[in-house]
């Protein structure tokens, strides 16, 4: 396997005295889909936000292509961010803009393309995510799944090297969840980009992942290919995969 694109090196982070990341070490392989699984509120989103510099660790390094992003100035950090795309949990579409404007937003901000070209690419991307002809709608008129797909279109439009997904299927019905999973799988296979997905949806995880990492109490307790994970005897992992309340993980 090639050199990892993102490396977490002993990352600590706590909020109001509560430890969320406790010496996290993690490698994200280039050109693959990595799924980080773990309990809700277990630090998955925090991990994701660290990758893109929305949060800075209390301690530890985060390397993107060998560059430590925890010490970057705003300008340099924005340079790094241009290599990323991110799909937020609720889509995080701008309420005041139409679907078309939302999708085209990164192009307007970061390219010198003319208006027609921007519109063309926007429409194309909407076709890719299965929402042709919705450019004129407002985000409020869309269902949760549609919003996520528009968010994905927006995340992909600048053709970033790395795409981050924050719980792409949570809150969706199983059919829509499956559609999103297929979309992720398809776009990854077509482009060969690095995808990082956080999820607690076990079924989806095994469907899309090249690598799975289990985050528990601020650390990675198990990682590997889906096959390796299935065979891993770690009781915590086993309980999580089984999805039962009995086991070493105590429900508070």
């Amino acid at each position: 396997m090639a050199e990892p694109i993102i490396v977490f090196d002993g990352v600590h982070k706590s909020f109001r005295g509560q430890k969320v990341l406790d010496g996290l070490d993690l490698e994200i392989p280039r050109g693959r889909t990595t799924v980080i699984i773990g309990r809700s509120g277990g630090g998955k989103s925090v991990t994701l936000k660290h990758m893109i510099g929305l949060m800075r660790p209390d301690r530890g390094r985060i390397l993107v292509d060998g560059q430590d992003i925890t010490r970057l100035e705003k300008g340099a950090l924005n340079e790094v961010r241009r290599r990323f795309g991110m799909l937020f949990q609720e889509g995080a579409l701008f309420d005041s803009l139409t679907v078309g404007e939302n999708v085209a937003f990164p192009l307007v901000e970061h390219t010198q393309l003319d208006r027609a070209e921007i519109e063309r690419r926007g429409s194309e991307m909407l076709v890719t995510v299965g929402l042709p002809g919705t450019e004129g709608k407002m985000p409020a008129e869309l269902s949760g799944g549609m919003r996520k797909r528009v968010g994905l279109a927006r995340a992909l439009i600048l053709e970033p090297e790395i795409v981050l997904f924050d719980e792409p299927t949570s809150g969706l019905d199983p059919i829509m969840a499956d559609a999103i999973d297929r979309l992720i799988l398809r776009t990854q296979q077509e482009s060969g980009r690095t995808y990082v997905v956080i999820s607690h949806d076990i079924r989806a995880t095994f469907k899309i992942a090249h690598k799975i990492a289990m985050l528990y109490q601020g650390r990675i307790i198990a990682e590997g290919t889906p096959e390796e994970i299935r065979r891993n005897p770690n009781p915590i992992l086993a309980q999580f995969l089984r999805g039962t309340a009995e086991g070493p993980i105590q429900v508070q």
């Binding site: 510099g53 929305l54 340079e79 961010r81 937020f88 609720e90 995080a92 701008f94 937003f105």
Partner: peptide, 18 residues
Amino acid sequence: GTMRVTEQIDALEVMAVD
């Protein structure tokens, strides 16, 4: 406030917009 809560502000930052 709504933009903050629904991560729209984060989205702006992620898209390298101040």
